[in-house]
Amino acid sequence: MSHGLYLYGIFPSPGPKDLGLEGLDKQPVQAQVVDEFVFLYSEAQQERYLASRRNLLGHERVLEQAMEQGYQTLLPLQFGLIIQDWERVQQQLLVPKGEVLKQLLHKLEGRREVSVKVVWDAARELEALMQENAILRDQRDQLEGKSLSMDEVVRIGQAIERAMNDRKQAIIETFRQRLNGRALETVENDSLMEGMIYNAAYLIPWEQEAEFCEQVEVLDQAFENRLRIRYNSFTAPFNFAQLR
């Protein structure tokens, strides 16, 4: 039983046809032309889709497979969007937001999103900081086996915290200086896990991905084994397709 139409993304006309893709709940992915836009959709088998890892990846996979087949200019829609009929899309989305959608598609033409996530080992970084900074090391050593006042404990703790934050910011600034100038736009997102100190998405010209990847490798080598750098070279441009 269909519960409406599940939407994945929007392409400029003429858009994709007969992609042969499988969407959520193993439903065939279809294309629907509405005005100057082409919507990728499948029949919704649920009234509401839970944002599980499986469903989220299924949503993203449809978009990425369409891009891999050559339909690279795309506005990905947020996960979980179900509509009842195309007339409602016309009234609720295209009439009020049609011009904005055209502008976003124009902005994304010939461009792609890549992302960099940087993870450090805080314990190792703290130990390295202590090796490099004799004053902080002496202060930390005072915390062990001595009876200090609460004020002294707090002061030493804050000094170490500030130094660690400075260390983190120095790494982040290095990534910004190396990568931001090579991107048309950059979006910095929240960290997704403990130890992640930087999470950024970049909008770059499609053909310049290899060059951008090279710069990420240069950074990886510069920091040797200090950091784990996760580079995603191919994803739908969620960070640069925000409807205002």
Rank of each mutant, 00 (worst) to 15 (best):
L74Q: 09
L77H: 02
F79W: 11
F79P: 00
I82R: 04
I83G: 06
Q84S: 09
W86P: 00
W86K: 02
E87K: 11
E87Y: 06
R88S: 14
V89R: 00
Q90H: 13
Q91F: 04
Q92K: 11
L93M: 12
L93K: 02
L94P: 00
V95M: 10
P96F: 07
K97E: 08
K97L: 15
L101C: 03
L101W: 07
Q103H: 08
L105Q: 02
L105K: 02
L105I: 13
L105H: 02
H106M: 09
K107F: 06
L108N: 06
E109Y: 13
G110T: 10
G110E: 07
G110N: 08
R111M: 10
R112Q: 12
V114P: 01
V114S: 00
V118W: 09
V119H: 11
A122V: 11
A122C: 02
A123K: 10
R124M: 11
E127V: 09
E127T: 11
E127C: 00
N133F: 04
I135M: 07
I135Y: 09
L136D: 01
R137L: 13
D138L: 13
D138M: 11
Q139D: 12
D141Q: 15
E144W: 13
G145H: 06
G145D: 08
K146E: 10
S147Y: 10
S147K: 10
S149D: 10
M150S: 06
M150N: 01
R155V: 09
R155N: 08
G157R: 09
Q158D: 14
Q158C: 03
A159W: 04
E161F: 12
R162M: 12
A163E: 05
A163C: 06
D166S: 10
R167Q: 15
R167C: 06
Q169I: 01
E173V: 15
T174L: 11
F175S: 03
F175I: 05
